[in-house]
Design a protein around this nucleic acid. Structure first.
Length: 804
RNA sequence: GCCGGGAUGGCGGAACUGGCAGACGCCAUGGACUUAAAAUCCAUUGGGCUACUCAGCCCGUGCGGGUUCGAAUCCCGCUCCCGGCACCA
């Protein structure tokens, strides 16, 4: 009686064994080439979902593959454990965020172990553990010391549902990235990280990231939004105030017919003071700033008003009216723009609505320069009506005007970024406390390093209403000033969880290190992450913040690398019936259930086989069955043992070595696990059909499959009587001799249409091939009575006869 | 609106440098084994037409053109879908 593959017993057995032998522990070894394989660590929501399984299966295959190739592979796992849901759970279930989080971690760790991931669990980190957030706080202080952390007041994004502020990156289309609630604007004093100081480097170093998807780099480029231009100083007519205006189109400066200030622009108040416009302007500003971010993105109607004042264009001394309008943002550039309706769509729309003059100063390609155009012409062209600059065009015009302005002291070249500083304060309990103390005498005082961590008080009450929970905890708030010793108050805001996740990949390199956030030697050995794998949703958020942190730490001499992630793989979503799996849709397939029913190897194999990693994957129960069937097929094939005797069949040997080549290249160069698996399937089909199957063939099959199905292959390896773990064996190498075929099939075409297939010795000459093609009866029937005008020969592949 | 990515059988997908379109898997159908079923194994499986002995021809990779001996692949022009950004001056 043939023994069936008992996946349950086998998987449990080997998981126990790997744990017992500490099979996946990694140690630094400068003698060996390292490979750092990392998947984005999860938020411990309580249960793994299929997206996690996909993410971690991809990483696991790579890690195991690289290990077999002889690399010293760091493959760690941990928890992005601070965040809102824990507080919501605390309110709803009357539990403590820590209790909830730690029990979730425990469950998810169990689930990961059950999937057979080869993590070195001794390196596990959880960002909510004081051992970890002590160093998050330490890094905050590092940024503070380096002038990169500051408290500033400004209009900030407020999510009323999360009851906290958000960074710009965390507002998506006007709504909170997490809960989708429309975000409001509030003026608050908050902590920021000066990421803008690194804008140029974050942009430039994207060039170093050859292993990143172009799409992600484009998104980061757009987000940083560098634009080159000139800041021109207009002068307020009556008061003489300077009104700097940023433009990228200084070649249109002679076309300025008005100036627009942001409604909140500080000059508005001054210029309208005591005039008939004062009250209306104030009301207009109040209305504009009350707009939520969502309204801002949808309210397209441009509105504005004249504020009764004029400014002088420094280029031509022209007097232009001053307006305020809702489409000018105080946060970008100088909060004031020049109105050039002839050459800017927004200005044109605005000018049409309010009857402002449209003055053409750039000639169109057709040569026309209509006095009253019907639409804005926004491309480049020769300047007209522009005094000494007439005739200059494009880059040359931009340069000449900028030079002139700088020379005359009218304006200066400037580079503007769309990127804003990173707002990191959160009015939440479950986060890393910002290590700052406010003293009436000494002002803002950083907590001394030796006092870290500033730990979260455990005794807290979650009501679900009111301000930050920490504000109400007297024992936490009340402290003494580290400088003067007098009574002082602690900062009660905690840090954005993205701060915690901006450096975790470094902590893994020396997780128990007590003298700093990282051991410099360890970080320098392991960094950068050679392969990072995660969802595209972090294209800007986490991936930009982490790059920023890496650069700060590089400046501080803590790491020698400038970029944290050398290669990035963004995996697609796991869909069910065409849409993302979600609780509300009720189309969730739980990993635990699949593992229970088919085993971890099946789950992993299916998810890798169903689609290339970057594309979305449609879940299919039938597909899972197929993967399961295949594993059983391998089981039976290998246990059957070698077949026949004598010399190995060269065709089988060829198939074997072709499979090694294909699987190796697909994993290593293309991450096409689906085609790698299909190559293994083809090999299995070949071996089933073959009359002679060698021990070598079966052994190689098991090795090739090992990264994908770690439990099954480990069991087979031992049943074959082999020593040691299959996962510590050397990855098979193909023999280039073995894959050379003696005879190849060559396609014969007549006028590009396939008419015959001929068997010819490999390496036949062009003339020989052409002759053999002509010798074919079938081919003859197609060329009979016609003239051969051309013969195209692709050696070992194809002959094409062109006839007339 | 701008920037990216995509469209290939009933389905997921493959085709790496322009060279046999549809590998591999799923589904389906037929056969073998079995008292029967499951499991397993073998075979067929893009569409159409002519043959049904053995095959042969035509069409076919979102649409319309082009380059080429030859195009899923390159170029030009469109349609639709997905993602990102969106008054950024």
């Amino acid at each position: 009686m043939e023994e069936r593959y008992d996946f349950k017993a086998v998987e449990e057995k080997w998981q126990r064994e790997w744990e017992r032998t500490q099979a996946y522990r990694v140690h630094e070894d400068v003698e060996r080439k390292k490979f750092y394989c990392l998947e984005m660590f999860p938020y411990p929501s309580g249960n793994l979902h299929m997206g996690h399984v996909r993410n971690y299966s991809i990483g696991d295959v790579l890690a195991r593959f690289k290990k077999m190739q002889g690399y010293n592979v760091l493959h760690p796992m941990g928890w992005d454990a601070f965040g809102m849901p824990a507080e919501n759970a605390a309110i709803q279930r009357k539990t403590h965020p820590a209790t909830w989080t730690w029990s979730n971690i425990e469950n998810m760790r169990r689930q990961l172990k059950r999937l057979g991931m080869d993590y070195d669990w001794t390196r596990e980190v959880a960002t909510c553990s004081p051992d970890y957030y002590k160093w998050t706080q330490w890094l905050f202080l590092l940024l503070y010391k380096r002038g990169l952390a500051y408290k500033g007041e400004g209009a900030v994004n407020w999510c009323p549902s999360c009851a906290t502020v958000l960074a710009n990156e965390q507002v998506e289309g006007g709504v909170c990235w997490r809960c989708k609630t429309p975000v409001e604007k509030r003026r608050l004093s908050q902590w920021f990280f000066k990421i803008t100081e690194y804008a140029d480097r974050l942009l430039e170093d994207l060039e170093l990231l050859e292993g990143w998807p172009e799409r992600v780099k484009t998104m980061q480029r757009n987000w940083i939004g560098r634009s080159e231009g000139v800041e021109i100083e207009f002068i307020a007519e009556k008061t003489g105030d300077k009104i700097p205006v940023f433009t990228t189109r200084q070649d249109t400066v002679y076309g300025v017919t008005y100036l627009v200030l942001a409604p909140e622009h500080p000059l508005v108040e001054k210029l309208t003071a005591g005039t008939e416009y004062e009250r209306e302007a104030r009301e207009f500003a109040a209305k504009a700033s009350a707009l939520s971010e969502l309204d801002r993105t949808t309210a397209l109607e441009k509105e504005g008003m004249f504020i009764g004042a004029y400014a002088i264009n420094p280029m031509n001394s022209q007097r232009v009216p001053l307006w305020i309008a809702n489409y000018v943002l105080m946060e970008y550039g100088t909060g004031a723009v020049m109105g050039v309706p002839a050459h800017d769509e927004r200005d044109f729309e605005f000018a049409q609505k309010y009857g402002l003059e449209v003055r053409t100063v750039i000639r169109r390609p057709d040569g026309s320069a209509p006095a009253d155009p019907s639409e804005a012409y926004t491309s480049y062209g020769p300047m007209v009506n522009s005094g000494p600059f007439d005739g200059l065009a494009g880059k040359e015009a931009l340069r000449a005007v900028a030079d002139y302005m700088e020379e005359k002291g009218i304006g200066k070249r400037r580079i503007n970024y769309r990127l804003r500083d990173w707002l990191i304060s959160r009015q939440r309990y479950w986060g890393a406390p910002i290590p700052i103390i406010y003293c009436d005498q000494c002002g803002t005082v950083p907590v001394p390093e030796e006092d870290l961590p500033v730990t979260l008080p455990e005794k807290v009450v979650f009501t679900g209403t009111g301000p930050s929970v920490l504000e109400g905890v007297e024992e936490f708030v009340n402290t003494t000033c580290p400088q003067c010793g007098r009574a002082a108050r602690r900062e009660t805001d905690t840090m954005d969880t993205f701060v915690c996740s901006s450096w975790y990949y470094l902590r893994y390199t020396s997780p128990g290190y007590e003298d700093g956030p990282l051991s410099v030697a360890s970080a320098n050995y392991w960094m950068p992450v050679d392969q990072y794998i995660g969802g595209i949703e972090h294209a800007v958020l986490h991936l930009l913040y982490s790059r920023f942190f890496m650069k700060v730490l590089n400046d501080a001499g803590l790491v020698k690398e400038r970029e944290p992630f050398k290669r990035l793989l963004t995996q697609g979503m796991v869909l069910k019936d065409g849409s993302a799996m979600s609780k509300s849709r009720g189309n969730i397939v739980a990993p635990d259930e699949i593992v229970e029913k088919y085993g971890a190897d099946t789950a992993r194999l299916f998810i890798l086989f169903a689609s290339p990693p970057e594309k979305d994957l449609e879940w299919s129960d039938a597909g899972v069955e197929g993967a399961h069937r295949f594993l059983n097929r391998v089981w039976r094939l290998v246990l059957r043992g070698p077949v026949g005797s004598g010399e190995p069949d060269p065709e089988v040997r060829r198939a074997l070595h072709l499979a090694i080549k294909k699987v190796t290249e697909d994993i290593e160069e293309r991450f096409n696990f689906n085609t790698a698996i299909s190559a293994i399937m083809e090999l299995v089909n070949t071996l089933y059909r073959a009359e002679r199957v060698t021990e070598e063939a079966l052994e190689t099959l098991v090795l090739l499959l090992a990264p994908f199905a770690p439990h099954l292959t480990e069991e087979l390896w031992h049943r074959m009587g082999k020593e040691g773990s299959v996962h510590t064996q050397a990855w098979p190498k193909y023999d280039p001799e073995a894959i050379i075929a003696d005879v190849v099939e060559v396609v014969v075409q007549v006028n590009g249409k396939v008419r015959d297939h001929i068997q010819v010795p490999a390496g036949a000459t062009r003339d020989d091939l052409a002759a053999r093609a002509l010798a074919s009866d079938r081919v003859q029937s197609f060329i009979a009575g016609k003239e051969i005008v051309k013969t195209v020969v692709v050696p070992d592949k194809l002959v094409n006869l062109v006839v007339k």
